[in-house]
Design a protein around this nucleic acid. Structure first.
Lengths: 337, 337
DNA sequence: CTGAAAGCGCTAACAT
DNA sequence: ATGTTAGCGCTTTCAG
């Protein structure tokens, strides 16, 4: 492996000059600098990130903490595309990504310890249990963090606009003449609470009363659960005219169940999803859903984190709200007609 | 940050002793060692991977090279779940994952340079253009590599059993009485070639002749392309009784097109996918497809790479074939009835 | 059984 | 304009 010393020898200069030439920010003779750089290039020099880190305390490496338990974070399109956006944005600034986890060999590291072990300059946290003491410890540590879809006091975060999203959905449903609206909650998280509150509030603002029977507990990304809950809703004496699902994927379970009952979408019953996964546009009818801009969320979170890392003094904690958009689709019937 | 020196001071011993105690593999007095370890723990010591690397030349970091161009590798379930499996397996051995890419700030690094820059101990390569000179350079470098779904001479790889997979599909179709079998190829890769060859060979072995009209060029994961090609097949004078798609996702485009023609699956035409994504089990009818064991592929590749890293002398290059299984589903009609 | 010391590759303050 | 040098935190040989 070619190192600075090799270049110095080759050029007949000191290692300091090589280092300076490579950074281009010194009072070296421009010609010398240029020459050194050309030799470095010819020799195929690649800096050693670890050696540099030891000196500068900067790894140009950012940690990504994704859900760990179900280990399925990566398999959800919303997170996969977010991760991809984080990666791309980070790379454009010269940062790499390291996954933070804690099932690490025998000596189980905590999230914080893992982050220290790898000297990450900061961590992006998404899709975890934000009440977890390890997560809290990490957020409250000296390591810069940006959380996604959850806000910690005095910390930066990037959130999808769940309140507006759910509001848009409800207002659309009302516009389409729906009053009997059923709502299936996702797992008990801050996001779910926001969406549910927004759902309720928007209904109320529009003078619509939602029967308690129409509110169900579901799970994110588990079609089977949605299926079961859908059956309960379909069996009600007074059936809802539309069912709002926690996400597009779990909505699939609903579709199966609805079809099993011999009902047609949207003629017999309407359905709405959330997320806007690609599949929602491939199914027929196209699914009515709220498209979250996962790419923008990923990009913004990486950008914000790097800003904090590079300008710790002048960067204010901030919550960045990323807007989505309603995809009207064809799964909601217009009852006005 | 607490370092070895701090522990040494606290314990009144030398840093060498602390290091030895932490590794537990020396001739230190067991009691001293135990004491040092307890103090280290109490002080919240976390080793610094970079400092250790500088000395040992081992980063405990493995690079993962995924498709870079369409930047959608992560969004395909097959790769997402493979990546997740790689990550979990690697972590269980104390290794972290670093994505290898080449759009890195201004100084565009090659894959090899990026790998060197981060000192990865090895690289797992998947879903790339294996003819790319940068990829070849990386594979032929001194850095240990394991490739997925592609074999380099004298190098280790993990491959999904595409030949058996396609064979299983064809034999199943024949068992179901199909003779007019259409085949849509994926992008021009080694995997596609294997599947296609196996398809042809199996047909031939069973005395079935495939009209050239029935062989179409398609693309992986692009439903729209499959849709277009499906239309061509449906418009043939002598329509095939079954269409074999390059993957489950692109098959969706076929479904849409088939339904647009007012045809029913499988009564009017049968379809078969490949991959076995979760969705294939959620759709009704359940999709007939070949389930690739992406988790096992990921796991095996990580395991193999680590084996090479840790036992470079005694590990033989090897191609590990991971079997899948036919998911019979309900999208193929039994023509014998 | 324990410690001193060299050095991994690099940066940057401080000479010259 | 260029060079010398002191570490960053760690492992490991060799001496005691």
């Amino acid at each position: 492996m070619v190192k600075i010393k090799d270049i110095a020898d080759e050029c007949g200069v000191s290692i300091a000059s090589v280092s300076k030439a490579l950074h281009g920010n010194s009072d070296l003779n421009p010609k010398t600098a240029e020459y050194i750089r050309s030799v470095a290039k010819k020799m195929g020099y690649v800096p050693n990130a670890s050696a540099r880190l030891l000196k500068t305390n900067r790894s140009y490496n950012i940690g990504v903490l994704f859900v760990d338990e179900t280990s399925s974070g990566l398999e959800h399109e919303y997170f996969a595309s977010m991760l991809n956006a984080i990666k791309e944005e980070a790379e454009s600034y010269g940062y790499d990504i390291t996954f933070i986890s804690h099932r690490f060999r025998n000596n189980n590291l905590t999230f914080y310890e893992h982050a220290k072990y790898r000297n990450v300059d900061g961590v992006i946290i998404a899709s975890v249990d934000f009440k977890d003491s390890e997560v809290i410890k990490l957020v409250e540590s000296e390591i810069p963090t940006v959380t996604i879809d959850y806000e910690f006091n005095g910390k930066s975060s990037v959130v999808s606009d769940n309140i507006q999203g759910e509001k848009d959905i409800v207002e659309y449903l009302i516009k389409m003449g729906h009053k009997k609206i059923a709502f299936i909650k996702g797992d008990d998280t801050a996001v779910t609470l926001k969406r549910f509150t927004s759902f309720y509030k928007t209904c109320e603002e529009n003078g619509i009363k939602i029967s308690d029977d129409y509110i169900k507990e579901g799970r994110y990304h588990i079609p089977k659960v949605s299926g079961t809950v859908t059956r309960e809703l379909l069996n009600l004496k007074e059936r809802p005219t539309v069912i709002v699902y926690p996400d597009d994927y779990s909505l699939l379970g609903g579709i199966t169940e609805i079809e099993k009952h011999g009902l047609k979408i949207p003629d017999d019953i309407s359905i709405v999803g959330y997320d806007g996964i690609k599949l929602s546009r491939l199914l027929r009818p196209i699914v009515t859903t709220y498209v979250q801009d996962s790419i923008e969320i990923g990009r913004q979170s990486a950008k914000k984190l790097i800003e904090i890392i590079e300008n710790p003094k002048t960067t204010l904690p901030e919550t960045i709200v990323v807007k989505g958009r309603l995809q009207e689709g064809k799964t909601v019937k217009d009852l006005n007609k």
